[in-house]
Design a protein around this nucleic acid. Structure first.
Lengths: 196, 196
DNA sequence: TGACAAAGCGGAACGACGTTCCGTATCGTA
DNA sequence: TACGATACGGAACGTCGTTCCGCTTTGTCA
C-alpha cells in the first residue's frame, strides 16, 4: 500500500533532518527525469545513480516503487482530479464535461512512458499504484458519470470503476505504435455509453 | 520474431532425432500446465524442471518465450481464426457474427492467465507474441468488420488492427478482480461501433 | 555388430535486477 | 564541542534470463 503516513512529496510534516528533505527532493527530480527516458519501471539503481545517492536511501524514502511513482506524479493526478468538478460546472452537457475530463486523463497516461502498463501489472510494487489512481480519481469519475446519467446523456448501469479501468487499459501497451491511437478507442468506448 | 522455419508444434518436418521430438512434446505439455498455474511469464526454470529437462533444451526448441507460448496456444488461436468465416456464413447479421467472434477471442484471452498482459508487454521475448496473434487473427477481423460495414451495421472508418488491440487491452490487467469484467467493457466498445 | 560423427542435452556460469542490512557519516542539540 | 538519533551508502544475497560447452544419445554405415 502507498504510504499514507505523511503526504510525502508535499510539505514535510515534522522534524526531518535537512539532508533527508534534500535527498527526497533530489530523488523526485532524478526519478522524474529517468521516468521520461526509461519509463516508470526503470532500474532502481539508475535512479539512485542519477540522484547521486545509495539505494538504501531510495528505499527509505519510498519503500515501494509505487510510492515513488505516486510522489512524482502527485501534482498531475491532483490537477486531473480537480479538473473534474470544474469541467462539470463550466459545461452545459455533463457528458461533454466527462468527455473532456477523460481526454485529460488519457493525455496524462499516454505522455507518461509505460505508466498505463505499470498500473495493470500484477507484480512488483505496482499494485499500490493502481490503487492510488483509482482511489483519487474514482470518486471524481463517479460524480461526473452520475451527472451524465441524470441528464439522460449516458445509459445507466455502468460502473465508474470498470470504466476507468477500461480507459486505463486502452492507454496501455507498446507505446509509439503509429497504428494504435488510444484516443480513438476511448472515443469508441464513450460512444458506447450514449443511450439510443 | 517467432520462428517461421518450421510449423513447430505440428508434424515434424524432417530428420529430427527421436529424443528431440519427445522432448519437444514433453515441453509443450509441461509449459501448458505451468502456464495455467503460474501464468505465461512463469520462470523458465520452472518449466524446465516440470518437464525434467535442462534449460538449454528449452532454448533450443523455443528460442524466445513467444515461440513457446505460440506453440502451446497454436490450436486455440487457429480455432478462433477459423471460427470467423464460419460465423459469418452461419449468421444473418455480420455484426452479430462479429460479436460472437469477439466473444470467442475474449474468452480465450481471459482464460489464459496473464496472456493478454503479456501481449502488450514491451519487454522480454513477448514482442513476437503480439505479432503472431495480430498476424493470424487480424485478417479475420478485417474481413468480418468489412462485412459488417458493408451491411451498414457498423460505422465505417474503424481500423481492424486498432480494434483488436483495444479488445486485447481491455482483457488485460490484474485478473480475478470481481469489480472488473472485460466482457462488459468490450460490449461497450462494440456498442460504440454501431451507426446512429 | 561396433564404431564414429552429428545432433542434442544438462546445468554451471554470468549479468541484470530487486531488496535487505548494517557499519559509518552527518545532523541537531545540549 | 560532544553525543545520541537519524540517515546514508553500497556490499551482499536471492531470483531470473540467457549463453556456452563438455558430455551423452542417436542414427548410420561398414
Amino acid at each position: 500500500m502507498v504510504s499514507t503516513a505523511s503526504p510525502s512529496g508535499e510539505l514535510p510534516a515534522k522534524s526531518k533532518r535537512a539532508d533527508a528533505v534534500r535527498n527526497q527532493q533530489t530523488l523526485l527530480t532524478a526519478a522524474a527525469a529517468v521516468f521520461v527516458t526509461s519509463g516508470v519501471d526503470a532500474p532502481i539503481r539508475e535512479i539512485a545513480t542519477r540522484a547521486g545517492v545509495g539505494m538504501g536511501t531510495i528505499y527509505r524514502h519510498f519503500p515501494t516503487r509505487a510510492d515513488l511513482v505516486v510522489a512524482v506524479y502527485r501534482h498531475q493526478v491532483e490537477a486531473c482530479a480537480e479538473a473534474g468538478p470544474a469541467l462539470l460546472a463550466a459545461t452545459d452537457s455533463p457528458f461533454e464535461a466527462f468527455r473532456q475530463w477523460v481526454d485529460l486523463f488519457v493525455d496524462f497516461l499516454v505522455t507518461k512512458h509505460g505508466l498505463a502498463n505499470a498500473m495493470q501489472s500484477d507484480s512488483s510494487g505496482f499494485a499500490a499504484l493502481h490503487a492510488y489512481f483509482l482511489d483519487r480519481l474514482g470518486p471524481v469519475c463517479v460524480r461526473m458519470l452520475d451527472a451524465a446519467v441524470e441528464a439522460g446523456e449516458v445509459t445507466p448501469g455502468i460502473q465508474a470503476y470498470e470504466l476507468m479501468r477500461g480507459i486505463g487499459n486502452l492507454c496501455a501497451g507498446r507505446d509509439g505504435d503509429p497504428r494504435y491511437d488510444p484516443r480513438t478507442l476511448v472515443a469508441l468506448l464513450l460512444r458506447g455509453l450514449r443511450p439510443d
